[in-house]
Amino acid sequence: MYYLQDLTMDAIARELRTSRSTVSRLLSLARQTGLVQISVNNPTERAPVLEQQIRRRFGVEAHVVPVADSVSDSEALERVAIQAARTISPLMDSNAIIGVAWGSTLSAVSHHLTRKDIHDSTIVQLNGAGNTQTTGITYASEILRRFGQAYGARVEQFPVPAFFDHAETKRAMWNERSVRRILDLQHRMTVAVFGVGSIDAGIPSHVYSGGYLDDEDLAQLAEDEVVGDVATMFFREDGSHRDILLNQRSTGPDLDRLREVRRRICVVSGETKINGLRGALAAGLATDLILDEASARRLVQLAADEQPGAPARLAGTSRADR
């Protein structure tokens, strides 16, 4: 009545024999649950041009969120999270296994998910969240719970630390049947949703601010020339990652295997994450990218500044591999 028949709320209230405020609440509920989705076609919008440029340069489906440069980092994240939640929902299908990473960005996204009823699907945690100060269960489980609630999906947590103290411990744990059950779900993922972690982000990535890494770990990351991470698996700006020592102790998904997932949705907010984003794109980790306009402009500009005759580097290979 409101959107298709152009009736006013007063007219709808009279026809339904209810109050105008009830009609207003129903319209709000329709938007919140995804029954109604609103799009704006702005002829002066720069986002579509940036999306096309990112698509051509990096081979990903890009969604650029218009955000003014004057907006704070926290407000920009909120706007990107709202758009990401609305973009993600139509991509979710029944009989799916959906891997979800934890972090500041995904936490924000999870608060704005619109409900979509899918059947026989599973939300699986991509990486452990425990450290020496906390189990991480409450933080990570809240993100997973919101995803499961939005899509009516089962939730499978991964109750292991984010990083083991020793690589040998990880190898032993990965042979345990209870752990292998979760790993098997991850290996059969049809969709993965994640952000990009960065040490220098305007809003610090949770893995760097939440007590997961000590000074020795950070020094090792600097020595390995790490620019960012996806689900606590680290990489360099050229996408190489296989010889990074901390990855041997991380409980995140193997990045080579992550690239095999059919749909990989990356959400990024903040121009300070640009080096991490470039590394993730060089590693071929994303099929879909949702990011703010300033980051999109910077990404396109850096790509344009690169020398066209420079030899391409192989994504996912280490310096030693090359």
Rank of each mutant, 00 (worst) to 15 (best):
G99R: 13
I265S: 10
R17P: 02
E306R: 15
R31S: 05
S205C: 12
S24M: 06
M189C: 14
R17Y: 05
L7E: 10
N42K: 00
L258Q: 12
V80W: 02
N95I: 00
S39P: 03
A140W: 11
S198C: 11
I97G: 04
A286W: 11
L291Q: 03
S19I: 01
S110F: 09
D292G: 00
L185S: 08
D120G: 04
V109R: 03
S21Y: 07
A304T: 13
T122A: 02
S121V: 01
E75G: 00
R57I: 05
R298Q: 13
A108C: 02
A286H: 09
L35G: 02
V155L: 05
R264I: 09
Q53C: 03
R264V: 11
A85H: 11
T8P: 07
V196Y: 02
R55N: 14
L126W: 10
S104K: 14
L246T: 12
S19L: 11
R180D: 12
A153Y: 01
H241W: 15
V300W: 02
D117Y: 05
A222C: 05
D215H: 09
G202R: 02
S104R: 15
P48I: 00
F234Y: 13
T122F: 04
I290P: 00
A162I: 01
H63M: 01
S89E: 15
N175S: 11
Y139S: 02
Y212L: 10
G197C: 13
V227P: 12
L91K: 13
G59P: 08
V160I: 15
L185D: 08
N175K: 14
G128V: 12
H187Y: 05
L7N: 06
I274F: 02
R264L: 12
S104F: 00
A68G: 02
G99P: 10
A81W: 01
